[in-house]
Write a protein that binds this DNA or RNA. Structure first.
Lengths: 218, 218
DNA sequence: AAATATTTTTAGATTTGTCTAAAATTATAA
DNA sequence: TTATAATTTTAGACAAATCTAAAAATATTT
């Protein structure tokens, strides 16, 4: 059984491992958890002791199979609770993160599987991120960044890379939500902005925005 | 902001205060929390510092107005989550306590009020205990113990005093649930058992059972 | 009312998770 | 390739919540 702190570290190590085939550095973890490197070193010892990660002094952290499965169960809980908050309690997608960070630590397999069924076995959370199933399998969904799209093709918005309140509220103001469809009109070479035809209007999205919107060709 | 431990102590002190107009003794708290008296003394200092209780050395604990309100908000959360588990996730009434003990510590006023609305502003939890509203008001419901009833009158089961798994499963086996109706046939003087006419059968309930069943005359 | 028992508090220790400051190691640069 | 910089670990400290053992206060009993 893991403490809340151990679960939070493990989740961060899992996410960092997704885009890193080297060992994860102590500093990288410290930065994500917003803590000091010395605290991370201490926690590394505890997670290693529980066979969730491997670690040699000064060599970075690798997550084990057990660690990956455990992390995916935490992520499963987080994302299912987010769906609950949005679908059932009518939270906005920018309001769910902090509450889900607390709810993800509730320890009851029966609870989370019953919640999954109650929600209709959703495949994605309110930000378009995939929800691991009870076995730890993560459903694949085709998607690409708006920056990678082709002009004069139609796309549907299927996810956000940045899930910050600021970005989500920006999208709300532009009336862009998951499921929104549009045509890509022009990739501007100069500033890498993307102009789309959305709800009968031309809308220009900056590079930063385009780099954080996942879309799918339709 | 309170820690989980502080909330658990406060809840226990609140419950003990309901049936005690003296100060609550250190030992009484220790017994309920299943901890040592010395640990209780330490925690008393913390709760006193936060103005949730008053306490003079060796004199027992009294809960303050702030303490009562705070405790009722925790109980509100506990009972609303129990309703959610039973009504929405189809938990049995004997399976909800431990999970609700965890869920009651989730800190979000918006969450708990949205949950209240989602559940249709229930007045009672799955054991018939009243749910404080957002202001801390506790709805009153007429009820008496089965031991106090009159022969040849009709009653409805409206709550349980003992919420242990053993008692709840016993009631399940007898097919007695909240809302069940029956006629009280006989109070047996010898052993204080109560015989009822329930679903066309005579059923004799022991003194222990009758002392823990809340009913209402219909 | 003094002796005994019980309750409560204090003192000091332990575990978890954090910190600062210093030491050890690795990486970078002149 | 040595000097410098950055990273990582260790050492020691602290707060929260717990414990045991002993001391202090209160309650009970003869």
């Amino acid at each position: 059984m893991l403490t809340h702190a151990e679960e939070n570290y493990l989740k961060v190590i899992y996410h960092l491992s997704q885009t890193e085939d080297q060992g994860i550095s102590t500093n990288a973890i410290a930065q994500k958890i917003d803590t000091k490197a010395s605290s991370v070193t201490d926690m590394i010892k505890k997670l290693k002791e529980k066979d969730l990660i491997t670690h040699e002094k000064y060599q970075g952290v690798f997550i084990t199979q057990l660690g990956m499965y455990t992390a995916k169960m935490i992520i499963r809980k987080h994302r299912l609770w987010e769906v609950f908050l949005v679908d059932k309690l009518h939270f906005n997608w920018d309001e769910v993160h902090d509450v889900a960070e607390e709810l993800e630590h509730i320890k009851s397999e029966k609870l989370i599987n019953a919640l999954d069924a109650f929600l209709g076995f959703p495949k994605e959370d309110p930000h378009g991120d995939p929800i691991p199933n009870a076995k730890g399998e993560i459903p694949y969904r085709e998607k690409e960044l708006l920056t990678e799209t082709e002009e004069n093709n139609n796309y549907m918005c299927v996810g956000v890379k940045d899930t910050s309140v600021a970005f989500l509220q920006y999208l709300d103001r532009q009336k862009i939500a998951l499921g929104s469809t549009f045509m890509v009109l022009k990739h501007e070479n100069f500033d890498h902005s993307v102009t789309i035809l959305f709800q009968e209007n031309e809308l220009t999205l900056s590079k930063v925005v385009a780099q954080n919107l996942f879309v799918k060709k339709i």
